[in-house]
Design a protein around this nucleic acid. Sequence first.
DNA 1: TTGCTAAACGGAGACAGTCTCCGTATCGTT
DNA 2: AACGATACGGAGACTGTCTCCGTTTAGCAA
Lengths: 182, 182
Amino acid sequence: MRADAKRNFDRIVEVAGATFRSKGYDAPLDDIAKQAGVGPGTLYRHFPTREALIDAVMQNWIASVNESAEKALAHEGDARDRLMAWFEEYAARLTVHKGVAAKITAALGDATSPMANKCQTYSTANAKVIDSLRSEGAVRPNVEALEVLRLIGGIASVADQGNLPPEAVRPMLEVVADGVLR
Amino acid sequence: MRADAKRNFDRIVEVAGATFRSKGYDAPLDDIAKQAGVGPGTLYRHFPTREALIDAVMQNWIASVNESAEKALAHEGDARDRLMAWFEEYAARLTVHKGVAAKITAALGDATSPMANKCQTYSTANAKVIDSLRSEGAVRPNVEALEVLRLIGGIASVADQGNLPPEAVRPMLEVVADGVLR
DNA sequence: TTGCTAAACGGAGACAGTCTCCGTATCGTT
DNA sequence: AACGATACGGAGACTGTCTCCGTTTAGCAA
């Protein structure tokens, strides 16, 4: 990739992120192009569809928070406390960007999605938490790690779309925690 | 409302429902108008926004299934069986139309939404199930009926968006059931 | 029936956003 | 410096949204 191309690519993603957050995910792409100081042609060459651009923005964001994903693993307390800490951490991350929860959760099971491998960190972090609790015998048999990820994703999606405050989300997470633990 | 107006209104909703299902929720509205044998002006007079038309389609659908919502209440078996029967019934209904799960679940807490009162039947059916189980002492304290509705809605949304098969949904419902029951 | 009026219709066309095509400019290499 | 490959950008075609207003029709009253 040529240097000027990369410059434009990055600039577009940056501007798009800011614009999507402030004006919504249906903001005119030509505006974003103009804002980024490029022609529409350049934007569409890099991102053939709106979807592609949104993906790029999100991947950018996931990468930026990924590094700290393991924080929740080092929590103090009993099994339930640790599980809840992880749930809240995960749900909070998912609700930072409008729409991200649904998108990531849908991508989880689909290996062909460009999102999926970006979410590896989440998947493995989750598996680690569940496995560690399982080895203590705290987890019900038949509970799969992927299911848990999806359940929390579902809660985050609902919270996202209904603009639910954290105090409405917490009890839902607790129901899932009780369902996961013996 | 004049007779011809009502005729057109109903015809538009009918055509829109079929079109949305076959071509997706972003199908051109002018096409729907043409298909319904009316001009775009007529469509837009009845439904100023796409959202309004989608709502009308969904309300139409909710009304059509509402009447049978209590079926799941008359289930045989122990507390867990009955709860699971209700969960599956509800989740199945929510996933009939693409996008309906997220929409209805988001509307649940919001009394101002035109969806909300259409969903009364669901809310009260759910409350009935939970209350009846609670009176048997089978439900954990602190579990609210609305939370349960949202949890199932979240699962349905995820299933909807990720095209999950029923066998992937069931275990998630079971986790919630275990979290709801003592 | 006929006439009348308010209600409703419908389609031409303005507008906005998407996306492409291709002549021009720039990069990076030799 | 010169050249090919790569990338740029913006004019404009295209598609879908939505409005305006002249025309039509339903429903009522005489």
